[in-house]
């Protein structure tokens, strides 16, 4: 199927245009982060006229009055909270999704319905009751509280996705494993999970992002600047009277960079992982 040259050229033009649109706003942030000014300035070019690393230096070098290195601690907090959220969220989601895909039990259909329905709750209004609940559980001002909330809030999507993927894995493989004397748990861990790698990667990425990007709950629940997550620190550059655009942009790039890196690392799984489940139809 050789395409004529003109068509290929048009395809490339279309894609390049799309890429420009996708990148332009990001370059604009890069420019803000690298320009010496702290404010917006009018210009169309996404490339900075003068380059300075001052904003990055300020953001990364931030310390508090006791000389604690805030950025380092907050980065650590973000990594710990997001990492744990991924682990907890994924373990909960994997088992639930597997059960929903393979076993029959009462309440299964209702369960699948509930998952979709939970996505319809407007989350912004849950702050007040959630606070009381976490206090009752003794989890205020702790990472554990954040991890629990984040991992449950990403659960419905993860379960939904993983169940779809598990549905596409032929049951014969598990039956063969059982014949060979594997226990149900061994079958699950040794046979099914390795086959579901793409979907696991995607759900892990999703859980991680949920935790990595959230700031309202983190700012409300945590009472120590050294244990804030990075988005909270970023939010501090947006003030009542003025926004420190340079710092905000530099911080935004630093916060986004790890997520982008993960995206690129996992992108070969993205396509298969997201869709395979749904294709079954």
């Amino acid at each position: 199927m050789k395409r004529p040259g003109l068509v290929t050229a048009l395809v490339h033009v279309g894609l390049v245009l799309a890429c420009v649109v996708a990148l332009y706003p990001v370059l604009w942030v890069v420019k803000l982060a690298l320009s010496p000014a702290q404010a917006l300035t009018l210009s169309v070019s996404p490339f900075p006229e003068a380059v300075t690393l001052d904003h990055f230096r300020d953001v990364v070098g931030a310390t508090d009055s006791q000389g604690r290195w805030l950025f380092g601690r907050q980065l650590g907090a973000s990594v710990v909270v997001s990492g744990l959220t991924t682990v907890v969220g994924l373990s909960l989601a994997v088992t639930a999704a597997y059960a929903l895909s393979r076993f029959r039990f009462p309440g299964k259909d209702a369960g699948m319905q509930t998952l979709l329905v939970t996505q319809m709750f407007p989350a912004t209004l849950m702050l007040v009751p959630l606070f009381s609940l976490l206090q009752a559980l003794g989890l205020l001002d702790s990472w554990a509280g954040l991890v629990l909330v984040y991992s449950t809030s990403s659960l419905p999507f993860c379960v939904w996705m993983l169940k779809g993927y598990f549905d596409t894995i032929p049951r014969e493989l598990e039956e063969a494993a059982t014949m060979d004397g594997a226990s149900p748990w061994q079958t699950f861990v040794k046979v099914v999970l390795p086959l579901a790698r793409p979907a696991l990667a995607v759900t892990a990425l999703f859980s991680f992002m949920t935790a990595w990007n959230e700031f309202i709950l983190a700012a409300t629940l945590i009472n120590d600047a050294g244990r804030f997550t990075l988005p909270v620190a970023l939010q501090q550059y947006v003030g009542e009277w003025k926004t420190e655009w340079g710092h905000f942009a530099a911080g935004a790039l630093l916060v986004s960079a790890p997520v982008m890196a993960l995206f690129f690392a996992l992108q070969r799984f993205l396509v298969g992982g997201l869709t395979a489940g749904a294709v079954k139809g």
Partner: peptide, 25 residues
Amino acid sequence: YPEAARGLAYVAPAAVGIAVLIVVP
């Protein structure tokens, strides 16, 4: 429901999490 017990056991942790932290609030 031949596999009810196993199924419910697998689902339980996630179900409890969702019930406590999403449905209750």
